[in-house]
């Protein structure tokens, strides 16, 4: 089975950007994310990070690679073990990735939490169920920031966050890009949030890239028939009554 087929793109080190990969289920976007994270090795072709192939680098020193490339996952309620206190993951990341001496762990974590609009005082000693989905996703982002990564791979990070809080998380990504010079790969099926934050955009279908380019341009006037179909299918508050009228016209 080919999940991702002949996909090529590159991102420049000194120009932080949000690159969005859009696709529906089965488009191969998550497989691509896992390959970039070094969880799976590509069967052919190369993924190069900082001049070295990812699979070779992971084999050589996984730990150092993880410090630079961090993931954010879909379900905030699953990002932390429900039976464990959540600060443990932040402290652990700070200790293990050597950014901080023993005494600095708490300060580093507090800073990272501050960057996402939380504080250590709000998180310390609490279990995941004591926080809301939005707060948990912020905490997950803060944890990823603790190791001072260069690249963040966010796989559907807001699809399970409530609509009223979703945009605040999405906006957070643009802010982190600006303030920390982070490069972010934002994987989603949601064109509207992609429109808001991405600089560049890749639309995938069945493992292949169908359209790519500057985000606003592509989404405002998609060229590929599939991209057009995708855009047309997005239901927004402005789609009021599209099905109602279709019925009435037939009656």
């Amino acid at each position: 089975m080919t999940a991702v087929d002949d996909v090529s793109f590159s991102m420049v080190a000194d120009a932080p950007e949000v690159l969005t990969i859009i696709g529906e289920s089965g488009s191969g976007k998550s497989t691509l994310a896992r390959m970039i994270l070094g969880i799976h090795a590509p069967s052919s072709g190369r993924i190069v990070f900082e001049g070295e192939e990812v699979s070779a680098r992971v084999a050589r020193d996984r730990h150092a690679f993880m410090a630079k490339v961090q993931p954010i996952f879909q379900n905030p309620f699953e990002s932390f073990n429900p039976l464990k206190k959540l600060d443990r993951y932040l402290f652990m990341t700070a200790e293990r990735f050597g950014r901080a001496g023993r005494g600095n762990v708490e300060r580093v974590c507090d800073e990272a939490l501050g960057a996402v609009g939380l504080s250590l005082a709000e998180v310390r000693g609490r279990f995941p169920h004591e926080l809301s989905g939005g707060q948990l996703q912020r905490a997950a982002i803060a944890r990823a920031l603790v190791s001072r990564p260069r690249l963040i791979v966010a796989d559907e990070p807001v699809s399970m966050v409530d609509a009223s809080l979703r945009m605040s998380i999405v906006n957070l990504f643009s802010r982190l890009k600006r303030e920390f010079g982070l490069t972010i790969i934002y994987i989603t099926h949601d064109l509207a949030t992609a429109y808001h934050i991405s600089d560049r955009l890749i639309i995938m279908r069945r493992g292949q890239i169908v359209e790519t380019g500057e985000a606003r341009g592509v989404l405002s006037a998609p060229k590929h028939p599939y991209s057009q179909m995708l855009k047309d299918a997005v239901l927004t508050p402005d789609s009021a009554g599209i099905f109602r009228s279709s019925v009435q016209s037939r009656l």
Binding site: A163, S164, L165, R166, M167, S168, V170, N171, L191, A192, T193, Y195, H196, R216, L219, S220, K231, V234, T236, P237, D238
Partner: peptide
Amino acid sequence: SLPRIGDRSERKSL
């Protein structure tokens, strides 16, 4: 707070 394609104005979350 709902995002719309074609409207890039800042969305406020609750």
